[in-house]
Design a protein around this nucleic acid. Sequence first.
DNA 1: TAATGCACCTGTGGGC
DNA 2: TGCCCACAGGTGCATT
Length: 280
Amino acid sequence: MPELPEVETVVRTLNGLIVGKTIRDVQVRLPRIIQKPDDPPLFAAMLQGRTFERVERRGKFIRMLLDGITLVSHLRMEGRYGLYRTGEPEELHTHVVFRFEDDTELRYKDVRQFGTMHLFVRGEEFEQPPLHKLGMEPLDELVFTYRAFRDLMAKRSTRVKPLLLNQEIIVGLGNIYVDEALHRAGIHPEREADSLKPSELKRLHESIVRVLRDAVDAGGSSVKSYVNGQGEMGYFQYSLRVYGRKGEPCQACGASIVKTVVAGRGTHFCPRCQKDKSRR
DNA sequence: TAATGCACCTGTGGGC
DNA sequence: TGCCCACAGGTGCATT
């Protein structure tokens, strides 16, 4: 499940793989992936002859900048990119193929078919869905300050976990890193955001930054199917303290990690380190 | 306006 | 062994 660290790793890998390559043609096998333009042949035609200049990240979205246009790609649950030689056998669930002039090709594979691609005139992507309403970048020190974080949390009565998952507030956090950040901060996932004390908000702010930075340094977490653009796994899954560790002892206190459902999401926490002090 | 619930989709694993 | 079904979760949309 690609969250910010996994997407950042894919972006870094793609920069080394496709920058400078010119597209000969594009094959769309699963039209559903192409959201904009709502016309896969036009999508292919717009990309033909263009050269990849660089690859960037905005939240969990990948921005591929070509001459004059931007391809915005979201991996959702299990999307992945890989560079192959033209003619190499194609794996199952390959939905979009970008063939280059040097007889290599970038393949987009997605078992669950949830991923999306949008094409924009360069610069216009920030004014339209899906990028137009995205929140703060948590690894941007100038943007994600404690003060900005505190002000956003203080006026929300909703539970802290779904709030942190809301990409209009903070981008890049998904189910894994929200559980990890809340555990490191010692905060129960069902606490109302506006009930958090300044000391708790401070810890949570620091935990979000720390867990994301550590995960980026580790190349992301390979939970289930995630690999980077070169088919390599990340290794932050070995540093996860609660996610996927139901029944195991908490590394901090030894209590058994609990799994429950919060806002429809599987949620892992330590009942001793993360006491529920909500008003409910 | 904000919060909540559900659909999308397929592979996996548990239960029978 | 094989079948069935719940579950996994990011996002967008509908509903409350």
